[in-house]
Amino acid sequence: MGLVESGKMPKPLTKLLNLSRKYSVWCYQWGLACCAIEMGAAFASPRYDVMRLGVIPFPASPRQADLVIISGTVTDKIVPSIRRLYEQMPDPKYVISMGSCTNTGGPYWDSYSVTKGVDQIVPVDVYVPGCPPRPEALIEGIVLLQERIQNEDMAARWKGEQHGEPIVLG
């Protein structure tokens, strides 16, 4: 790992390692509301089947995960748990914010109990809009994230220096 962090990786090797990371994205699921149904359709149904894209949606804990998909209404009460499990993930880690509620609060923009955007507590890599987004939209978000992983500077990402502008779908 010292080689990766030093930034002295040969380019072809970076490409190869990024390719490997891109196609073995272990993803844990933060289903909080109705968006979780669409996420379940994308992950568990043979019709959409994210595993063909190399996304593995069954890690035993966030400590094994590379990606978290936060889908649904984030309330102030669940915020500490989201932050805590995000911090348990090993670097490099990625966050997809799925659905209007997670992005901005959505229809609950004026509620006393809903957090207006999960990006207030964790850095978001991909915003997937929709109420709820269709599974295709979520898969597009995953594919765009994989493209970013492919072209990443691993050293910067490993050290948490590079986050880049978030990808916004639509």
């Binding site: 102030d76 009460k77 609060g105 923009w109 004026d110 509620s111 006393y112 109990s113 207006k116």
Partner: peptide
């Protein structure tokens, strides 16, 4: 029961401000 433990105020009272609004 529903609110976070440290929540202050009573949200369903009419004078409770919805800050976003």
């Amino acid at each position: 029961i529903y609110l976070p433990t440290e929540f202050e105020g009573h949200p369903l009272r009419k004078e409770f401000p919805l800050l976003a609004r």
